[in-house]
Structures are given as C-alpha cells and as structure tokens.
Write a protein that binds this DNA or RNA. Structure first.
Lengths: 245, 245
DNA sequence: TATTACCTTATTATCTGATAATATAACAGT
DNA sequence: ACTGTTATATTATCAGATAATAAGGTAATA
C-alpha cells in the first residue's frame, strides 16, 4: 500500500522484484561500510517502512544476506553486520557489489592475485586428470573465442567458458567455485580493453595445447604466463579509464 | 500446530530453529544428490507439510539456499536444484554438509589441494605486507597452540587462528574466504589424529619465524612444507579410521 | 499444417495481522 | 556488590489472504 503510488516512484524505481532490490541495496550498503558492525542495523519494521515492503520480503532478504555471512539476526537483539572475514566474498553477487563500489584497480589486483594462485595449478591438474571429453570442451571454448572476433559478449562468454572448462577438468569441485571470480575478472578486463582477448588468443592456445598433450608443467607455466601478461596489460590500460559507472 | 505434539517429536527432534532445520535438511539432501536438477523439487506447500512448518519458514529457507547458489525459484515453475558448479562450496555450511555426506579421504584430498595452492603464497604475502600488529597476532596464535597441550578444542581454535591470522596479514580480503575451508580441514585433521597439531608445532614455528623476519620465500616454502607433511601424515592415518559419524 | 492469439491454471511473490519465544534491560531484594 | 525476577523490544513462527507470472492448452487464422 505504500510504494504503489506511481507519483512517488514514477520510473526507474523498483517495481517488481522487491526482494532482489532489498537484498542488493542492503548488500551494497554493507560492502561500502555504510552499514557496519558498529552502527545499529535497522529493525525489520524500519526496513519494511524504508523499502515499502512487507515484513515477509524483508525477512527473506535478511535470510539471503545471512546466508552470505554478511549479517546475523537474533530475537530481541535485532540484526547486526558481521565482520568482513565472514562474508562469502566469492559469491557472485557479493563480488559484483564489491566491484561496483571499490576502486577498479584495487579490486582487479585482488582478483588476479587469487587467479594466479589457482589457475596455473588447475591447468596442471586438468592436463593430468582431464578426460578426453573435458579437454575437448576446452578446445571448443577456444574455438569459440577465435570465432567471436570483436564481438564483445560472445568473446567474454567464450573466454569464461575456456577458463571454467579447465577448472572442471581439474576434477576438484572446490576449484569450480573460482569461476565466479574469473567471470568478474573477465568482465572488468573487457571493459578496460575490449580487444584484450584477441591479443591473448595465442597464449590461450598455448595453455590448451599443453593440456591436450598432457604436459602438466607446460600447462601450469603457460597459464601463469597468460595471467601475468594479462595483468600487466591491464595495469597499463587501467589508469586511462576513469572511475567506472 | 503440527509438529508441536510432543509424542510425535519426543526428543532430539527439531523443536525450535525450524528454519535452520529445514535449511540443513534440504541442503544435505541436495549435496548428496537425492535432490538434483533432474528430479522435481517439492513445492512450497509440500515442504510446509513435510516439515510441519508455515510457508514463511519454508520460503525463508528457500531463499537461504538460493543465496548459496543451490536452488532457484520461479513463479509457476517452482523450485529447482542448480548444477553443482553454481554452489558456494566455500560456504561454511555447505562445507559441513559435504563433509558429513562424503567419503572422508576424498573430501580431505580436495581440501588440501586448495590449501596447498593458497596458503604458501598467502604466507609469502604476509611476510611482505603484514603489519607488525598482524604478525604479532600470528605469534600469539602460535603461543596459544603451544599452551593448548592436548586440549583438543583450544588446540583447534588456536591452530585455526594461526592460519587465519596469516590470511589476514596477506592483505587480500578474498583470501580470508579460505578460512572456512581451513576450519573444516582442521576439524577433520584433529578427528583423525588428535596429536597431529602437537607433532607439527615446530613446522608452524618455522612459518611464523619466516614471516616475522620478512622472508617471503622461506614463508612460502615452510608453509608448503607444513601442509605437505600434514597431508602425508593424515593419509597414513586416515585409512585406520572407519567411515565417520 | 503451422502459427499466432487468447485463456486457464499452478506456483511463487507479496501483503496483512496475529501469537510465541527470547535476550536484554530495568528493578528489587538481599 | 550480587542475584533473582519482571518488563519489554525484537525476531520467529503461524495463518490466510491477493497479485503476478509463466507454462500449457485451446481456438482462430493463414
């Protein structure tokens, strides 16, 4: 009965998906530190008033954030933000919230540090353990990259698929979790420089070839090389880009 | 009004925390594959009947699982389980569900592969970037380990704190996420062999000393050594243990 | 036959207004 | 100062609505 008035929310306002809107709004406020463990968190009733949402929606949103380790809710005590060390930073949404509220270079730096720890070893595992079918999927992703040309979206998709296929071929389910991280990384990379993945096609091929011929050491090193070069390339371009949207 | 009857749930039954019980029950059924993308997921109404819970509780539980990437819910379509690649496997709860429903050795193997990728480099970063205060915390955690003696719980706590402090000193927030993974790993390790962390005290000290003297290479190598030795030790003991509880 | 437009329906999304449980705070008694 | 009791604010759960939406069926049309 509250937010329905079209004059109050004339356009662009969160019409449907109230739940998602509340989650995103609170999530972003938490990652920016506007809501933090030290300040009192709004009560369910306050949130309902603020968003013009019923208590059900608010409670569901609170549970969704709690499942990501960002808040905790207790009878009588109310809701409170947890320390950042408890957050599920590899969750796709949390990654996006952080990305959209952090200095681009810093976020990108964090991302690549992890990728450099994970992906070379994952490539080595893929070379050692990947089935023929799994390795064929890596090849298909590479083919898709070559055919994407300058098409940005399909380029990102293919690039992401390439890296995800390697994680899948490594036969460690925990590694697949890193896919989200790579996805955000690629999104940023292509935003910074759309031709980046064309430039690095040969280096992707080197990784694929190494995996295909079961050369774990070469797979490791070529992946490490690809990532280092990409990071270097981005560091040179990132300063030319103003603060992102 | 349904499950309240004390005769139906005489003891041990999920009296309070209905929400947590539903989340855990569904979560475990999903990780075991009993509920998977191919089979139709129960509707909200069915779940409410099964758990003797109101729709509110069911919906909140669904949102909590959806936030972990395990299910998706859509009007008219209903709920469906997502492919495992979308799950937040590093979430503390998901880790526990998987641990309690997987062969111990396999789970432990997955875990240590990741730890070996992450922690040596994290130790190197800690040596390079850690503040004096952060490194002091690592030292305190080590002291706590030495004083824990054979006290299992405080030993695990101190051990976990030791590794977490190193992650924190690495100054990459994404690495802190790995803390959950280490926590489960330590829990299993001490279950397999309670004296393990006494045996490895000197190797922990080596890591701490290297970080304290800002020797990144030594920090990396000593952490790698500690983890490799621990894994080896566990592999020798793990077969003597029957399937866990 | 194939395609499009419309209608029906099952299911989740949201709202409203209750009662119950519980942790903090205030208070009283020693 | 300490300990036990009571009040109160807040979340937890319940119950029963209406609204929105996507899937499937049906009919009109080319």
């Amino acid at each position: 009965m509250n937010q329905q008035n079209p004059k109050l929310t004339p356009r662009k306002g969160p019409k449907r998906n109230l739940f998602a809107h509340v989650v995103e709004n609170l999530g972003k406020r938490i990652v920016t530190g506007e809501l933090n463990p030290s300040v009192p968190f709004p009560k369910e009733a306050d949130l309902g008033r603020e968003f013009g949402a019923s208590r059900s929606v608010i409670r569901e949103a609170v549970k969704a954030l709690a499942a990501r380790g960002m808040i905790e809710s207790q009878t009588k005590t109310g809701i409170r933000v947890l320390e950042a060390m408890h957050w599920n930073l590899l969750d796709a949404e949390v990654l996006n919230w952080r990305y959209s509220t952090m200095p681009q270079a810093q976020f990108y730096g964090e991302l690549f540090e992890i990728r450099l720890m994970i992906e070379p070893q994952a490539a080595a595992f893929a070379a050692k353990r990947g089935t023929i079918q799994e390795i064929a999927l890596i090849g298909e992703a590479f083919e898709a990259m070559t055919h994407a040309g300058m098409n940005k979206v399909s380029g990102i998709d293919a690039d992401l698929l390439f890296h995800r296929s390697i994680l899948a071929a490594s036969h460690n389910p925990l590694l697949l979790q890193m896919g989200n991280l790579i996805a955000v990384g690629l999104y940023i990379a292509h935003k910074i420089s759309s031709e980046s993945f064309v430039v690095f096609l040969p280096k992707h091929k080197a990784v694929y070839d190494a995996i295909k011929r079961r050369d774990a050491v070469a797979a490791h090193d070529s992946m490490e090389h690809l990532l280092s070069e990409t990071r270097e390339f981005m560091n040179q371009h990132i300063k030319t880009i103003p603060a992102h949207a």
